[in-house]
């Protein structure tokens, strides 16, 4: 298995879609290849980074002015 093969199957690796033999091949490669180990960690961290960056910490009820605007817009549609 080469670095290119590891890179190609990273998504499947993290989403547990590989058969055991393929998984073992990847793990054998990353045990020997520091560069692939770093890449694999960063691939996983990228998913976390996207989630953390887009987190909305302000989940709350819709502001009342927006509730009223939405209800008015729906009423407009009804006419």
């Amino acid at each position: 298995m080469t670095c290119r093969d590891v890179s190609r199957f990273l998504r499947e690796y993290f989403e547990d879609e590989l058969v055991p033999a393929e998984r073992q091949d990847i793990e054998a490669h990353i045990a020997e290849c520091e560069n692939c180990r770093t890449y694999l960690t960063q691939y996983q961290d990228t998913i976390k980074a996207a989630q953390l960056a887009c987190e909305d910490a302000n989940v709350a009820d819709l502001p009342e002015d927006l509730v009223k605007a939405v209800i008015a817009a729906i009423a407009q549609e009804r006419r």
Binding site: T2, C3, R4, D5, S7, N35, C36, T38, Y39, T41, Q42, D45, K48, A49, L52, A53
Partner: peptide, 25 residues
């Protein structure tokens, strides 16, 4: 996307990120 040399080896060396991603973010 990552680039590869003939033989399928990474063309770049990846520098580790300086902080854990939770700390950086």
């Amino acid at each position: 996307l990552p680039r590869f040399l003939p033989g399928g080896v990474h063309a770049e060396t990846f520098a580790p990120w300086p902080e854990r991603v939770e700390v950086a973010l």
